[in-house]
Computed example of a mutant assay.
Amino acid sequence: MRITLVAGSNRQNATSTILLKHIESILLEKHISVSFIDLAETPLPLFTPDNWEFHENALHLIKSIQNADGLIFSTPEYHGSVSGALKNALDYVSIDKVAGKAVLSVSSAGGPLGISSLTHLQTIVRNLHGINCPEWISIGYGTNTFNEDGTPTDEGTRVRVQTVLNSFIELTKNLSHKPVVSS
């Protein structure tokens, strides 16, 4: 199984990215192959449909998404929506790269929770024909602190992450092993 994680903040040490790195460590412990794209370290030019000669970072993103069995997108919540960096990245991705794949949405907010960003992200995923995981992860103030190793300090957050990841992994397995129907 291959999972591509996209950290959708262009801010260094963003809590949404730290949370995604924690998720990556859990996946690696489960011996799941991971591709991690951090948009703060791999910036993308502003997408325009007038230019289809994509920057090498955009080509890397597209290939990583195409080769994945499942996808995890994280975003900070900015003004009730996803980050511009993540939206721009997803604008590079065509439906055929996401269709039928399990997608987990993860957010971090300066307020209680990033619910608006998650619903917007799930709408984007639906429009790319991805299969939204019925669970999601959102952290807000009080739960967005981490130990030196990147583990959330809040026990409830650690349990929630593990529970949601288990659900996502099961969904990804089920979707990536669909039997081929011949006519």
Rank of each mutant, 00 (worst) to 15 (best):
S81Q: 02
C133W: 09
V93H: 02
N147T: 15
F54H: 12
D38M: 09
A89L: 01
Q66S: 13
V82N: 00
K30F: 01
K97E: 15
S107K: 08
N132M: 09
G70N: 08
H55Q: 08
G100N: 06
A68D: 03
Q12T: 11
T48F: 06
L20N: 00
T15G: 02
I139V: 03
H55Y: 05
A99Q: 15
P134L: 13
V34Y: 02
E53F: 07
S16V: 06
H129R: 15
K101V: 05
S81A: 10
S94C: 04
K101D: 01
H60M: 15
L113H: 04
I131S: 02
L71Y: 02
A102Q: 00
L59Y: 05
I23A: 00
A89V: 07
A99G: 12
H31E: 13
A109C: 11
N10V: 11
S83V: 01
N51K: 05
D69Y: 11
G84Y: 04
I32F: 00
L104N: 02
I137M: 04
I23E: 06
S83G: 00
A14C: 07
V98I: 08
L128D: 05
L61T: 12
I72W: 00
L118E: 08
S108T: 04
V125G: 06
S35D: 14
K30R: 08
L90F: 04
L59G: 09
